[in-house]
């Protein structure tokens, strides 16, 4: 088939909502966009373990500690599902790791903020995982098969993450004044960065239109952000906390909550690498990668040795029979 016919059959599949699979022909830009998006997504899951791991040893009870460990383990799993999905597009894990560690690939800016108190574990679960869920649910229907299947797995696991976060905040809000103040402080610090998780405004997001045409994305950044604000504006009342936005108000005519403008300067600044923890996060990943090097080498050397050991003993047996 010539390229035009291949492109035609690709377009037809997209139109009919037939998934694209790894060995199918796909336009080079479609492949590139997916590698960038899935890679970014995988890196976010992996780097996202760091701010939460910071509190594992200091969780207030054994029960909270078990839950937090389980959540962080899930995030490692999410990173692995996504790396594997990206690898089906002909990029190696080594290349992706390299891109993360050299800063060539991005990850979600939210993980460049510090976790200052236990209440941050609540705010991250409720807001950050909450925002992730809203982003990820439509991705279960994304046009690339391995990505969509990975997202189905991930979404199944995410809802526990959001609930455990909400549960942390709820306990604090029902506790002493100081505990409630701690929860409010966490909400104050995490609210705006959470809204930024949906990316730039539609008008400033050049990739969105093409990604929607390819059905990689199903909703725009602003649509998803609005959904998130509507959800949180209701849930925050159960907590009895205040969302730190004086302009947040129900708009009867729109059927949505209005909200204030995001500080886009801060957003771009963190994206460019100047957030409070960018350097610390990459340093931690680099250290983990380097300190794990001898383990990976040893495992491979052992596997090689076992393999040659087996073939030697098989040859030995064969010789005896003869």
């Amino acid at each position: 088939m010539d390229t035009e016919a291949l492109q035609q059959s690709f377009n037809e599949k997209i139109d009919k909502d037939i998934r694209i699979e790894p060995k199918d022909w796909m336009p080079a830009d479609y492949r590139k966009t997916l590698i960038r998006q899935i890679g970014q997504h995988a890196h976010s899951e992996i780097v996202g373990m760091l701010p939460e791991a910071n509190w594992i040893t200091r969780a207030p009870t054994l029960r909270r500690k078990c839950i937090l460990i389980a959540k962080v383990q899930d995030e490692a799993g999410h990173g692995l599902y996504l790396y594997c999905a990206a690898e089906t597009l002909n990029i190696t894990r080594e290349e992706m790791t390299e891109q993360l560690l050299t800063g060539k690939a991005k990850y979600s800016s939210i993980f460049n903020y510090p976790t200052l108190s236990w209440a941050d574990m609540g705010a991250i679960g409720w807001l950050v995982d909450g925002a992730a869920i809203i982003n990820q649910i439509p991705l279960c229907r994304t046009s690339y098969g391995p990505y969509a299947r990975g997202m189905v797995r991930i979404c199944k696991e995410e809802s526990f993450h959001q609930r455990q976060g909400f549960d942390i905040l709820l306990s604090l809000c029902r506790g002493s004044e100081a505990q409630k103040a701690m929860a409010q402080d966490a909400l104050n610090r995490w609210w705006w960065p959470s809204l930024m998780m949906f990316g730039p405004r539609d008008a400033d997001s050049p990739h969105t239109i093409q990604s929607m045409k390819w059905k990689i994305k199903r909703f725009t950044n602003d649509e998803l952000r609005q959904k998130f604000v509507d959800m949180c504006a209701q849930q925050v009342e159960v907590l009895g906390l205040q969302i730190p936005d004086p302009e947040l108000k129900w708009n009867e005519a729109r059927g949505h909550y209005d909200f204030g403008e995001i500080h886009w300067d801060e957003f771009w600044n963190v994206v460019k690498g100047n957030g409070p923890c960018n350097k610390e996060r990459i340093a931690a990943r680099t250290r983990a990668h380097e300190e794990g090097e001898w383990v990976r080498r040893a495992a491979l050397a052992y596997a090689q040795k076992q393999k040659s050991g087996i073939s030697e003993s098989q040859t030995a047996k064969a010789t005896i029979k003869e």
Binding site: Q73, G77, Y81, C84, E87, R93, R149, A299, Y302, Q306
Partner: peptide, 17 residues
């Protein structure tokens, strides 16, 4: 799905996790 591992035993243990 898939994963990276040095040998089959490690692959099975990682697959479990």
């Amino acid at each position: 799905g898939s994963l990276h591992a040095a040998d089959a035993k490690m692959a099975i243990e990682s697959a479990r996790d």
